[in-house]
Amino acid sequence: MDLFSDNQLNIFDTHHNLLPFDGEVFLYPNFYQEDGVYDLFEELKHSILWKQDKMKIYGRQVNFPRLTSWYADNDKTYTYSGVVNTPIPFTPLLLKLKQAAETQCGKQFNSALLNFYRNGEDSMGWHSDDEKELSGNPVIASASFGATRTFQFKHKEQKNAKTSVALSNGSLLIMQGQTQHHWLHQVPKTTRQPGQRINITFRDIKY
């Protein structure tokens, strides 16, 4: 089964920038074909080595509100949110997904952070992907599988500058340029029960 669209065009030529200024974000809702996308979600759900990370809040350890996993094509650790991640080698499926994103972006990636949102209570708080290992103006390709969740942006200085987008099953979101310098993003909690979602953010880590 061919899981990838036959008419993949350059995302930067066919979609408008979702941010009003100080960054570039592009959404390709149907990056993966509808046929087979559910199978992709199920394979990722059952084949990825998920883990429950913890973070310290007001002096006590609490669980991250999601499951995570870190895959890479090297053996270098990567630290974010105080968690040291030891990479797992890419699976054949992750390599295929990564290569498709690379073709779309014209950018090579060497690592991927995966998040498993089990229900509406699972979330990702406001943050920027601005770790020193990403360097400069990183290009980050974010693939979504499963339930649709809202993805929000807000400017770091101009507090009234906000926008949001629905990330649906099989979509690809590209963040590039100065986005991480000027904008925060999050996946908020929801009282609805949207179902389960897996997100993969492909990155190029500089060591």
Rank of each mutant, 00 (worst) to 15 (best):
N119C: 01
W183C: 11
Q176H: 10
F90D: 04
S5H: 12
T179K: 06
N10M: 01
K51C: 14
L184V: 11
S47Q: 08
Q104E: 12
D129T: 10
N10V: 09
Q193C: 09
I174D: 01
F4N: 13
T79W: 07
Y117I: 08
E34N: 05
E157D: 06
V187M: 04
D75I: 15
N160Y: 02
E42P: 08
R197T: 08
H46K: 14
N199Q: 07
I200P: 07
G59H: 02
I57Y: 14
I198L: 03
N115C: 07
T201H: 09
D6F: 13
D122V: 03
A112P: 02
F12D: 05
D2T: 15
P92D: 06
Y207V: 15
K98F: 08
F12W: 12
S142E: 00
T150H: 12
A101Y: 08
I205T: 10
F26V: 14
P87H: 11
W50T: 02
S144M: 07
S123G: 03
K45Q: 10
F31W: 07
L97R: 10
K98L: 05
H15G: 07
S47V: 12
T103H: 09
A147Q: 04
A147M: 08
P65T: 13
Q8P: 14
H155L: 11
F21S: 09
L97C: 06
N199S: 03
K132Q: 04
A72I: 04
G136Y: 05
D204I: 12
G136F: 04
L113N: 09
I140W: 09
F109Y: 13
P92V: 11
D73K: 10
L67A: 03
L44C: 01
L93H: 09
N74R: 06
A161F: 06
K162C: 02
I198P: 08
R149A: 00
S47D: 12
E24I: 15
F202K: 00
R192K: 15
D22H: 12
Q104Y: 04
P92E: 09
P188L: 00
G59Q: 03
P65F: 11
T77I: 15
L67C: 06
R203W: 06
G82F: 08
Q176L: 12
V187K: 08
Q186G: 02
K107A: 03
K51Y: 13
S164I: 15
S81A: 02
P138D: 04
K107T: 14
P92A: 12
T91C: 01
